[in-house]
Design a protein around this nucleic acid. Structure first.
Lengths: 342, 342
DNA sequence: TAGCCCACCCAAAACGATTTGAGCCTGGAG
DNA sequence: CTCCAGGCTCAAATCGTTTTGGGTGGGCTA
């Protein structure tokens, strides 16, 4: 005889299992399982009895046991460089909101962008049996992180493709966003438009978009109008200083991210320049700080929330079996949000 | 005979289990388990053999099965109002860093501060079998959220106590932080110090700290110098306007949070007042935006990272069995960080 | 009355580990 | 030579579900 024949005395408050419910309802565990899952039809009266027993006993299904049997944890892992970075926090929230309704939870890992941590966490969440992984960490660290090709867990890469079947991707359309921003400046009549880029090899799509727009507008961009920063406010400050000491100053500056744009804004203020009359500034990302500065920063929105949300949908479509096939790529628009600096 | 007698052909890449390892090493699963856990000593030579088999087969233990048996998931849940809020993101990171080394991962839930979501997520993570819960959501929602007292999972409340055995708490010393800030202003010679408080019934400790310092400094604070905002920048703006239209203006303002302080700063700028010479401003929280505004905001740090980290330590001490006893409360200091506005 | 089909329900085998009582050797002591 | 202790190892039960292949009884048709 199995166990707990002493339903009489008060043992340590043992977890109430499906077997208890079955005993109470006078049916077999099988039947209880079936009324719970609805996978097989159960007579209405027994169904009632079972349901009653469940609520009387306060039964709660054990996810772990279920997981062991079904191999479904209903957990998605999300690997980001740093949850402390608002962009990734928002992305994570978008993901969580998207999959919550389907009963999925999210397991968050901050990798600090280090390959070894990426690998460690990747292994870890695999071992933990997550149903899918959203990989938003590392520019191209992907192939290093994953082992050989025997991958059976759906993976969604954010911000970067990854050549792997089963691996979907969602990426923001940096190029179009930048193009729109630059075109916007040109249309407004600015004639000497400069750009503060990111470090070499980074953010190339944003630069490409900028160049494309300039070409369409038939504006030549002299090399000295293309300077670089290191993504930081200070880097933007220095780059802007370089621009403003040029013999012919630019009358508009497109910055590859908001932090650098804020640095540029600092310079404008110091020089007593009026923004956007003397010089216009547009950033990229639409971080919180963009609305803190004065005037509020005109910028291009990096759709963090939507990226996370889309990643969630992609993962869900595979997990539900709704989609099975080659890796998809969805690209999301980066809309220009007009505020006070352009 | 159990299964997989066809180790010959290439089946779907079945998970390699402890049984495979055992077969390969010519021992029983028991022995493999023992070399893995070290709970019982095994002969050196067999140990070697087993270890070899493990690495040859690329065996990885199944956490789920282990969890089912041992009832330990090595996962901590953290319930926050919104992971998008940098304060909670940082707190979460502190927690994750603290427990990572011990092999614990973190499962994040954004409750939006709504009781029903709190309850839902609370149930959810309990059902998922997390080993502990860090509850950083809701000012006093606690007792509503948890069911009756039969709680066996360690809980750590952040920012609020909760009368429950097994329930630890970690709280920031708002009162001392506010006291220090106000005392700092008084020492600097400011003589008409005002305060922008939060809404009624909120942030009372910060108000108390302010009053205590004023008392020590023997400064009377007339009622019109104590105004209220709603935690937002706009609320701070309006409150500051009210203060500045007083017959005798304050020469220093302590704000119950940074956002309101930034709103106050806006007013000062509009009025052409020099900060901190004409009017000093101190905020509370030390959010990122505090270093964005000019001059940079002098404020009191709300130690988000440390709160999370401490919560992790508290949970760990119980999970490891190192501590078993009544609920503890650790209070963390909120240091004044001097910058440009005071 | 015999034969069938349905509608329901159950037994038992997984899932992949941990845990414990017991068995098998091998030496050394008596 | 017998016995016992100790060191290793194993079999079997357990954790709480899900999943199938069967049963069982009643109603309907011929």
């Amino acid at each position: 005889m199995p166990r707990s024949e002493s339903t009489t005395a008060s043992a340590p408050p043992a977890r109430v299992t499906i077997a208890h419910v079955a005993r109470r309802a006078g049916v077999s565990p099988t039947t209880v399982s079936h009324v719970l899952s609805g996978k097989r039809v159960v007579g209405e009266t027994t169904r009632r009895t079972v349901l009653d027993a469940i609520s009387e006993l306060g039964y709660r299904p054990n996810h772990v046991a279920r997981h062991l049997r079904t191999r479904q944890s209903h957990v998605l892992a999300v690997l980001v460089p740093d949850i402390t970075n608002p962009f990734y926090a928002v992305l994570t929230r978008g993901l969580a909101d998207a999959v919550d309704a389907a009963g999925y939870g999210t397991f968050v890992c901050s990798t600090d962008g280090q390959h070894d941590r990426e690998r460690k966490f990747f292994q870890d969440v695999m071992d933990r049996g997550v149903d899918g992984i959203v990989f938003a960490s590392g520019e191209l660290a992907s192939e290093i992180t994953f082992g050989p090709g025997d991958l059976t867990t759906p993976i969604v890469c954010v911000g970067d493709h990854l050549d792997h079947p089963l691996c979907d991707a969602v990426i923001p359309d940096d190029e179009a966003g930048s193009r729109d921003a630059a075109a916007f400046l040109a249309e407004r009549g600015y004639a000497r438009i400069a750009m503060i880029q990111g470090p070499p090899r980074y953010g190339t799509a944003r630069t490409a978009g900028f160049r494309a727009a300039m070409q369409v507008a038939r504006q030549r961009v002299p090399p000295e109008m293309m300077v670089r920063g290191d993504w930081t406010r200070k880097g933007g400050y220095q780059a802007m200083q370089a621009l403003m000491t040029l013999p012919t100053r630019p009358d508009a500056v497109f910055c590859a991210n908001d932090l650098m744009a804020i640095g540029a804004l600092d310079v404008a203020h110091e020089l007593g320049l009026s923004v956007p009359d003397d010089v216009a500034i547009i950033g990229f990302d639409d971080v919180d700080a963009a609305t803190i500065v004065t005037p509020q920063l005109t910028t291009v929105r990096n759709p963090a929330y939507d990226l996370g949300s889309a990643a969630g949908d992609l993962a869900l479509s595979r997990l539900s079996g709704r989609y099975r096939g080659a890796g998809r790529t969805v690209v999301l628009p980066c809309p220009l949000v007009e505020r006070g600096t352009a």
